[in-house]
Write a protein that binds this DNA or RNA. Structure first.
Length: 571
DNA sequence: GCCGTTTTCGGCCCGACTGTTTTCAGTCG
């Protein structure tokens, strides 16, 4: 069940696109996009709000609120249906082709009747596009190439893939003669769950040698654009990389600018304009005299606008600017705040490494405690038994304190059955230090059944943490259908923590869920779900999600000292 | 269409790159 807020957001995005395509007021289109984002991120369910309530969503005024109420009561919005009637849905999808925007999409539809990507490909093959004003042979080739890309990759990279590429490119470019600084920015710095483009920023007096170094990388498949300040390439894996080179003096302004998000930057620039200033990637200027005021660090750019430095993960225009103006930004959880990991596997079930290797690697990370939580018997393929689990407990006790004094907890990852029951009876469960419980089967239950199932698991006093709540796998498996707010409320009521599963294929919960759950007063556990020693560092992605969800260390039980954690688990 | 520490009207972020334009429109981020 999509949350009504998400349906409304999709509708508002569609309306914004339709306004752009039909040549409507660009400012109006932007207002609808902004409202769509605000609705998607709003904590209350729009279905529960009346006109006045909806108008309290930032960026939603009387007109948009009326459309939302109309949609919630009738299931349709007359104004949107009207625009839809004039523009086939395929025309909107044309703008997904890289290099093709709303103006061209409308031109192609009006003049050639193109209303799908297949139509577009056929028209290009027939050489029809070059007959149109403003288009030529190169445009045809570019759009054909764009269609190929869209059909092959579909777009975004997983977080760890983009991060690995970005780190490698930064390390390479940083060693080029004349490179004064180099770092990645963009959605990767903000730790979004998937990455569209990798943005690399460098400071140098002469950009050419840096651009050359990027273009010369062996995995660069294509140079998309090449200029004095910006070069764009596509890798053989299909990842788009932009390198921007700026003067060192502009480093801070450029980092701020290229980190985004677009929505955050629009707000920041509006603040600048209202203060008689102009902000660009080259600095903050006096709008009247053109005098450069600040540009060297991000902090001074924010400071000159009356704001504290805002952590990149918060820069989504989800209230961070208002909070910053109030002096009320959360002290978000630090990258090194975790004292332990509470969901990991060994080769007793489907992990790759022995308990000894996992524990030794975890201890080398500096953890104070570490839980082994192998699968329970209801996941039949893992062939777990009481005897095997008890034998592992003996090994876990032997490992307790054996590496750098790290305490080893013995736990399990239970299976939440179709009715919310878990694998073992209470007396056996009581023998574990920590129990994670997760859905591993029956993913397609109705929303009502799934909600009841999850709440029942929360109410089990031996279940401490719900693992990867939605079960989604990015790009592969859709999330389960449940009333998540009801589950969040149950977690808060029963003192059951919610996992932030850090595996880059999962990232479950993700940021918007975390924001909502946090409002219910839920506590969280940031876990690796490691099936190998190399997965243990994945918790940095979970911390990224937590920061995007505005969590502080106090919200996350595995930042707590062991004694406090134990009393939480004991309740 | 939204919004208000110069405002209930008149603004609304800014620059790079490309292609076809001989001065600029479209797209992107």
């Amino acid at each position: 069940m999509a949350r009504p807020n998400d349906d409304v957001a999709d509708l508002l995005f569609e309306y914004a696109d339709l306004i752009s395509i039909t040549g409507g007021d660009a400012f109006k289109a932007r207002v609808y996009e902004k409202a769509a984002r605000a609705v998607a991120g709003f904590h209350d369910n729009v279905a529960d709000l009346d006109q006045r309530g909806v108008e309290r969503i930032p960026g939603v005024g009387r007109s948009i609120a009326a459309k939302i109420v109309e949609y919630m009561t009738t299931g349709r919005v007359a104004a949107i249906e009207e625009l839809r009637a004039g523009i086939p849905d395929g025309v909107r999808r044309l703008t997904a082709v890289p290099g093709l925007g709303p103006k061209r999409a409308l031109q192609l539809y009006r003049e050639l009747g193109i209303s799908s990507i297949d139509d577009l490909a056929a028209a290009i093959q027939a050489g029809q596009l070059r007959e149109l004003k403003g288009l030529g042979e190169k445009s045809e080739a570019k759009l054909l190439h764009g269609i190929d890309l869209l059909r092959s990759t579909g777009g975004r990279s997983k977080l760890h893939v983009a991060e690995e590429l970005a780190r490698r490119l930064v390390a390479t470019i940083a060693t080029v003669d004349g490179c004064q600084r180099c770092a990645y920015a963009g959605s990767l710095r903000r730790m979004r769950e998937t990455i569209g483009d990798v943005d690399i920023l460098a400071a140098a007096d002469r950009s050419a040698p840096l651009m050359e170094a990027l273009v010369a990388q062996p995995d660069v498949a294509e140079v998309v654009a090449r200029g004095e300040t910006k070069t764009s390439v596509r890798t053989v894996a299909g990842v788009h990389v932009d390198l921007r080179v700026v003067p060192l003096a502009a480093w801070g302004a450029a980092m701020q600018y290229f980190t985004g998000s677009a929505a955050h930057n629009v707000r920041i620039r509006e603040l600048a304009v209202r203060a008689g200033l102009k902000l660009s990637e080259y600095g903050l200027f006096d709008a009247g005299t053109g005098e450069l005021l600040v540009s060297e660090t991000e902090a001074e750019v924010y400071e000159r606008l009356g704001l504290p430095w805002i952590p990149p993960e918060l820069r989504e225009d989800r209230g961070e600017i208002e909070a910053a103006l109030r002096g009320d930004l959360p002290d978000v959880i630090a990258a090194d705040a975790l004292r332990g990991d509470l969901h990991t596997h060994t080769n007793l079930t489907d992990g790759q490494a022995s308990a000894e290797d996992m524990v030794a690697t975890a201890a080398a990370r500096g953890y104070e405690y570490y839980a082994i939580t192998d699968h329970a018997p209801d996941l039949y393929m893992q062939r777990m038994s009481d005897e095997k689990m008890l034998a592992q407990r003996t090994r876990a006790h032997a490992l307790d304190g054996a590496y750098s004094g790290m305490r080893v907890l013995h736990g399990t990852e239970l299976n939440i059955g179709p009715d919310g029951e878990v694998d073992w009876p209470a007396e056996f469960l009581a023998g574990f230090d920590v129990c994670v419980a997760s859905v591993h089967s029956h993913f397609t239950q109705s929303s009502d059944d799934m909600t009841r199932r999850l709440i029942r698991a929360c109410e089990n006093p031996h279940v401490h943490i719900i693992g990867h709540l939605t079960g989604r796998k990015i790009g592969r498996r859709a999330p389960i259908d449940a009333d998540l707010d009801a589950v969040f409320a149950a977690c808060a009521r029963t003192g059951t923590a919610l996992e932030i599963n850090s595996h880059p294929d999962r990232l479950d919960l993700h940021d918007e869920h975390i924001l909502r759950a946090r409002r219910h007063g839920v506590k969280f556990a940031i876990n690796s779900d490691a099936h190998s020693t190399i997965h243990l560092p994945y918790v940095r992605y979970g911390v990224g999600m937590a920061r995007r969800g505005w969590l502080t260390g106090a919200d996350v039980i595995n930042t707590w000292p062991l004694e406090r954690l134990r009393s939480f688990l004991a309740v």
